[in-house]
Every structure is written in structure tokens, then in C-alpha cells.
Computed example of a mutant assay.
Amino acid sequence: MAASRLIILSFAVAAAGGAGYIAKNMAAAPQPASIVIPDKPALALTEVLVVSGDIPMGATVDGQLSWQAWPADTVSEGFITRDADAEAIEKLKGSIARVAMYKGEPLRNAKLIGAGQSFMSSILPSGMRAVATRIAADTSAGGFILPNDYVDVIMTRRSQSVTAGSSGESFITETILKNIRVLAVDQAIQEDEEGGKVKVGETATLELTPQQSEIITVAQQMADRLTLALRPIADAQETPASDGDYLVSGNGRRGTVRLIKSGEVSEVGARK
């Protein structure tokens, strides 16, 4: 009996020693260092004039502008800020959108036309001219030509041919202007909100150089028909070319005059 008590006592002493050793190591273990996260600096903001609703090209911006907080370090040079012009909303209320703008977009003066200014003359690039020409569904790609499309202008005219003892009539078709931008169809200067719903117009306004303006003016007098051929959008970056320069160019500004005499049609050169 004494031997078993001695064994139990030995086990108890050993267990107590192990527990004490473990407790000592736990107490001596280094505590993890605390990580101090510095406070982020406050983001500097400024108020920028933005569009509060969608504005189509040619519409006034009145009632569609508001101030919005904007990160100061992302404000571009063209933005209108409240610090620089606190009365901007009042000053710009009569302005017209030069291009379509959308809700939340920062406003830029370059996208506006001042109150009282002509819209068409404002969107026309420097050195270019706006010239109107009559169109119909059968002369304008079935009526699918819309503002900002690019077209070729094709002239069709009658030609009298005279041979020994007989005469006949034929037609000449030629492309007189290439890659011409359509500014407007009738009074519409952009596609409608439904993605360009087809509406056959009666007049297309084209963006032309002064030389091209003279070419189409002569062609309208000579032609039996002018047709607009729609070009793919991928060709829009090509340099516009004129195949009809001969109508108004040459020594002494030589053009072509169509004469009708005794039922016969002829064309002669004319000098200014």
C-alpha cells in the first residue's frame, strides 16, 4: 500500500512540475507588437458644374445644371468650378449644347454655344461651308442617311450624241464629291433617341469646302438627278476628295454651262 501511494505521489509531483514549466514559458512569451494604422488624410474636394440630366445636341442647358463635389486633384482645366465662377449656372442658362451631353458629365465651355449665337454656324468647322441639296428616298439610300453620316454625291445627266444622219440620248453618271459629312437632314441635326428611326427628309445639308460648294452648285444646275450614296463609318477618316473639280476649275476659272436650243442640249465651257 505504501508503495502505491509513493508512485501516485511521484506522478503528482511530476505533473505539477510540468504544469509549472509550461506556465513559466507562457508567461515569458513575447507579446505581438501592436500595429498602428495612421489616419488617412481627408480627401480635398471642390464643387464642379455637372449636367444633371441628358441634354441632346442643339438643346438649351437651362435647368439641367448643378454643382457636385469632385476630388480636387482630378479637376481638369476645362471644368467649371464654383470657386472660379459661382454664378456660372445663371450665366449659362441660355447656352445651347454643341454636342450631346449626359447626366453626371462635367460641363465644359467648349461644348456650349453662347446664347443668341447661330447653332449651325457654331458647329461648322473653320473654313467649311454648309450647303443644302434636295433629296428624296430614292436619291438618299432609301432614306437611311442621318446627320453625321458620310456620303458620296453622284450626278446623273443626259447627254446628246450626234452621228451621221442620226441623233440619240444617253446618260452620264459620275461621282463628283466623295466622303462628305451630312450636317443635317431637314431640321434634324442628330439621330433621334430611338437610334435613328428612319424619316425621309427633303433636304440634306452637307459640310463642304468653298471649292466643293461651287461644284455642287454647278452640278445642281446641270444634273437631272443628284444621288447621295451612304459610305461605311470606317471610311469617315479618309480625306474628302472631289472628282468634280473640272466643273469649276481650270485656267480662268472655267466651268460648264448647259445650253438648250431648239430642243437640243449642249454643254460649253464658260469663263468668268
Score class of each variant (00 low, 15 high):
175 T>K: 13
240 P>Q: 08
214 E>Y: 04
177 L>D: 08
151 V>M: 04
239 T>D: 08
235 D>C: 06
174 E>M: 05
212 Q>N: 11
138 D>H: 13
149 D>E: 13
242 S>F: 13
161 S>L: 11
146 L>C: 05
129 R>Q: 13
181 R>N: 03
182 V>Q: 04
136 A>T: 14
220 Q>T: 05
173 T>D: 00
217 T>I: 06
168 G>V: 14
130 A>N: 09
239 T>C: 09
116 G>E: 11
141 A>M: 09
227 T>Y: 03
209 T>Y: 06
154 I>A: 07
210 P>K: 02
115 A>R: 10
238 E>T: 12
197 K>Q: 09
143 G>R: 00
198 V>D: 00
175 T>Q: 13
171 F>Q: 15
188 A>D: 10
127 G>H: 08
212 Q>H: 02
143 G>D: 04
136 A>H: 15
151 V>K: 10
183 L>T: 00
159 S>F: 14
119 F>R: 04
225 R>K: 11
135 I>M: 02
233 I>D: 05
199 K>S: 12
169 E>F: 09
113 I>H: 04
164 A>S: 15
186 D>Q: 03
225 R>Q: 14
142 G>K: 10
170 S>R: 13
239 T>V: 11
231 R>K: 11
205 T>V: 09
148 N>P: 02
219 A>P: 00
144 F>W: 13
132 A>D: 15
233 I>G: 10
224 D>E: 15
180 I>E: 03
149 D>Q: 05
133 T>G: 10
151 V>D: 12
122 S>Q: 04
226 L>I: 01
151 V>H: 08
161 S>F: 10
171 F>L: 14
218 V>L: 04
166 S>V: 12
159 S>E: 13
223 A>V: 04
137 A>C: 01
131 V>W: 03
151 V>E: 05
175 T>L: 03
200 V>R: 01
176 I>D: 01
229 A>E: 07
217 T>Q: 14
136 A>N: 13
193 E>S: 12
235 D>F: 06
152 D>Y: 02
112 L>K: 05
237 Q>W: 14
208 L>W: 04
129 R>D: 09
232 P>V: 03
155 M>T: 01
157 R>N: 07
235 D>G: 02
236 A>D: 13
149 D>I: 06
195 G>M: 07
141 A>K: 08
188 A>Y: 11
183 L>H: 00
139 T>I: 04
122 S>K: 07
206 L>R: 03
111 K>D: 14
161 S>W: 15
190 Q>R: 14
183 L>A: 10
157 R>K: 12
245 D>R: 15
245 D>T: 11
155 M>K: 03
117 Q>V: 02
163 T>M: 12
204 A>Y: 01
208 L>V: 00
192 D>L: 01
123 I>S: 01
247 L>N: 08
224 D>N: 15
238 E>S: 10
124 L>S: 07
242 S>W: 10
235 D>W: 10
145 I>V: 06
178 K>E: 11
160 Q>A: 15
167 S>E: 15
183 L>N: 02
154 I>E: 07
166 S>E: 10
205 T>R: 11
196 G>E: 01
223 A>H: 01
245 D>I: 07
130 A>V: 14
209 T>R: 05
217 T>H: 03
144 F>H: 10
143 G>M: 03
153 V>W: 04
242 S>L: 07
189 I>N: 11
170 S>D: 14
243 D>V: 09
